[in-house]
Write a protein that binds this DNA or RNA. Structure first.
Lengths: 242, 242
DNA sequence: AAGGATTTGTTCGTATGTATA
DNA sequence: GTATACATACGAACAAATCCT
């Protein structure tokens, strides 16, 4: 029973058929309802749902309860430069994008081994953790978690809350300028918490940038871990600058 | 019916319970069978499977038919520097890793608009496309697709096949040295073709580096798109060099 | 080596919950 | 409020891969 004409499961063939229909333009924006797709392909509704789930994981489809299932438009990615001088506001404004940051939360934590090494403090030293959400045109763009030595920057939280800018908050704390020492990039699936804040699918991919900023004497100032939605961003590194 | 004590669906709570059991060490390597988990949590087997599917998508679990469901070990990521001088072999050997490249295929193609702009050739100009697979200790690490102007580098394919190195192949073609002009990084789900070659799950994440190399006069030499498995790599950018 | 037991994968059926139009 | 459409959940059966005797 459950005839498999060629060893390919039915939901996979239904998924391939839907993918082909989208590629050929037969389906443009919205999929027919699940029951109709089930009839059309001669399978149970569950089988259609399995296919849609797979295509959603691929990022091709997006199902909305009560509304329908839609083909995801793939907007061009915003180019985000990474380099010695990294200023979110400056970078975005070069591309005619008006950014705004939002303070999600702040907390006092103790440094673990990795954080201690990055910030050149003792393990267990007090840190200020700053949780931020960058928003562009009302659309959440990235989540970042910044860490500062609480001993060196006791008032960084209130300074950021006042100015809304890391650069200005550091200036208030006596750091006139800073530069990036190292940026490490990897990618993971978005965490449930970030998925909610970034208003993305729960299985979206985030680019993770883990960076350390140092002041002009080379002393570590900030350790920051930023999560960019991978389908909205492209990180750009140019050796010579633009 | 189907009492939702707190508005969280059952499969999600089962997933959270399993995640917690793994974090606390109650489950170390292998999960109990689905039927047993279903009994233990008082739900249907389908509900357990939905939870396991979610955790598999997160990369935490890996189900093998006939064998069981296992906790994925998360090996430390290899650090891959990106900068002006990028030489795969040199980079890997610094971390005591002995690399080897494998030529997957080569083809003559016509430049599309994007490629033409990157390589500074006319749209439709002939290009050599070089498909490679980088292997470390028998483990596939990255897939890359290189593009060269076929007019400027007519013999690049055979030169690479002989030497097994892009750097040496370019030297044979009269490019004594080259540097990276720009690297753009994003992330996507792995393509089915790459998944097979990289021997990874079909829903794995790849870091995609799209780069242009130029010779010492600044003329474009190579456009290369490399796919790194995100759970095996971390890309590192240091402004000043190491 | 053969065959039964175990375990995950697929497919159907049915019912109910929840959000949207 | 009703109808539509996706989401969750349970039950049953069989397929396919692996393991064990």
């Amino acid at each position: 029973m459950h005839a498999l004409d060629d060893g390919i499961s039915r939901w996979r063939r239904v998924a391939d058929a839907i993918r082909a229909d989208i590629a050929s333009g037969v389906i443009a924006q919205q999929l027919p309802p699940e029951v109709e797709l089930a009839e059309r392909h001669g399978v149970n509704r569950h089988t259609v749902r399995r296919a849609i789930a797979a295509l959603s994981t691929e990022g091709l489809l997006r199902a909305e309860r009560g509304r329908g299932t839609f083909v995801n438009a793939q907007p061009p990615r915003v180019i985000y430069p990474i380099g010695e001088r990294v200023r979110f506001r400056e970078n975005m404004m070069k591309q005619s994008i008006e950014p705004s940051g939002r303070l999600i939360g702040a907390e006092r934590v103790a440094a673990d081994a990795r954080q201690a090494a990055q910030l050149n403090v003792a393990v267990g030293a007090p840190l200020h953790r700053l949780e931020r959400l960058a928003v562009v045109d009302g659309m959440p763009m990235s989540r970042s978690t910044s860490l500062f030595s609480a001993e060196r920057f006791p008032d960084i939280i209130s300074a950021y809350a006042e100015t809304g800018s890391i650069t200005q908050a550091l200036q208030k704390s006596g750091v006139s300028d800073y530069r990036r020492r190292e940026t490490r990039i990897t990618a993971e699936r978005v965490s449930p918490n970030d998925a909610e804040l970034l208003q993305c699918a729960s299985d979206a991919i985030v680019l993770i940038s883990n960076a350390v900023d140092v002041d002009m004497e080379g002393k570590p100032v900030q350790s920051v871990r930023t999560r960019f939605l991978a389908d909205r961003f492209e990180l750009s590194f140019k050796p010579e600058g633009d």
